[in-house]
Design a protein around this nucleic acid. Structure first.
Lengths: 230, 230
DNA sequence: TCTGCTTTGCGTTATTATGACACAAAGTAA
DNA sequence: TTACTTTGTGTCATAATAACGCAAAGCAGA
């Protein structure tokens, strides 16, 4: 390695995570309550600094493992945030990512840096430290657009799910109501999902069909022009 | 500032730029021929390291100014590249950006780090050093999708332009041929552009109308479902 | 100025996609 | 059985759009 290569002082590199979960027909985000300054006792996104030998994906997995006790989530790079004063401790560039999780599959635990880890519905967030409000807004925006051209629902639902459950997920993320019958038609035309043949038992009324995601989905087919019901 | 804050060794942070230009009905990219190792005499994207007090946008402008003598381009963050061995000199994370330029407005000059600066048509690129081939591919992909929902043509064309010129730009970037009359209808329906009232003189046949971009464009209107002609 | 050729502007039409809506089947509870 | 809710399926009028026709504008050559 070139010895002169690291002689200038460069900004620190961090990663912040927007972890989305979906339960009780509500989209939520994982927030940490900080033990230490800055923003002591305030809520922030989970995050951490990039170590010399780590890839971005590895940092994300390390953060999720040590701070909230989960790993191997769907993960996507979001954006880099570079405002010079975004961290009062010094110059830190954050490469934000977002993750999707089915919360019922995991137990969340607070790591040693946090007092508490908690799910917050996306429309009832507390004020966030650093520029994490900005990061969150951008992550939600990304999720909203991504779900229209890529089958992201995979990650937020159980292995099998019903058509009404899938629709509720879309309505929740997009913040709109959708006509039941048109939604069904578009999802099926896109070959987004496949019938499993079994039905969800135990529900009060007609037992809905269970579907699974079509892993052979051709991405070219997948462009959902979903519009809100009047 | 917290004195312990910078005690660990962190990766260097760089920026690489994919500068797109459009001339002679061809989409091109600016490449540098490197004077020094690594990849001496090889072609790479222009790039540079982030200094302590700079924002990402400032690095991009500095690189464009010092390495190719241009500035104030349309600039967008693309993606961060973190493969541990992507730079033989050491661990470098690159936050790639892409820029759009009308090459006829600028004279390109090689900076002191480069032997040469040259436009290459995007379908005739030489092998690129580092992981710049990957970065370029992703930038082109992004441009292709961006142009369908955001009026990026602004930056690549002259102040005024004709309908056939705009269509040629779309055909070139998307790599398809489009029906003349359907293209016109969609562009006009989207209120993408406005008639200036004058015509392009000097052309061999019928003189086409000159348009300008509609700066009051409502982004909600702008969703071009352009499809290739059979 | 007349003819042929190319490019541009402005239509039309058949087909498809889509939003709005009706109705029957399946299940539960009384 | 009846009443009620939820789910599955189909219809229909309208909007979007791909394919295509045709005339006007300009130039070149006779």
């Amino acid at each position: 390695m070139n010895p002169e290569f690291h002689t200038y002082k460069n900004p620190s590199l961090a990663v912040d995570l927007v972890v989305f979960g979906y339960h009780n027909q509500s989209l939520s985000v994982l927030l940490l309550n900080r033990k230490d300054e800055p923003f002591k006792n305030g809520w922030t996104l989970p995050g951490g600094f990039l170590q010399m030998e780590e890839t971005l994906q590895q940092v994300c997995n390390r953060i999720m493992h040590t701070k909230i006790g989960i790993e191997n989530l769907y993960l996507e790079q979001l954006y880099s945030f570079d405002e010079p004063n975004r961290d009062p401790r010094g110059r830190v560039i954050s490469i934000a990512h977002y993750a999707l999780i089915n919360p019922e599959r995991f137990e969340i635990v607070a790591g040693k840096m946090a007092n508490d880890v908690q799910w917050f519905p996306v429309n009832q967030l507390p004020a966030l430290g650093f520029d994490h409000g900005l990061i969150f807004d951008q992550a939600l925006q990304r999720l909203k657009s991504k779900i229209l051209y890529y089958p992201v629902g995979f990650e937020l639902l159980d292995e099998t799910f019903t058509m009404p459950e899938l629709q509720a997920l879309y309505e929740c993320i997009l913040g709109i109501t959708i006509d039941r019958r048109n939604f069904r038609r578009k999802i099926l035309d896109a070959e987004y999902i496949l019938l499993t043949g079994s039905k969800r038992e135990g529900s009060k009324n007609r037992h809905p069909d269970l579907y699974k995601f079509n892993k052979a989905l051709k991405q070219s087919n997948f462009q959902l022009n979903i519009s809100a019901q009047q």
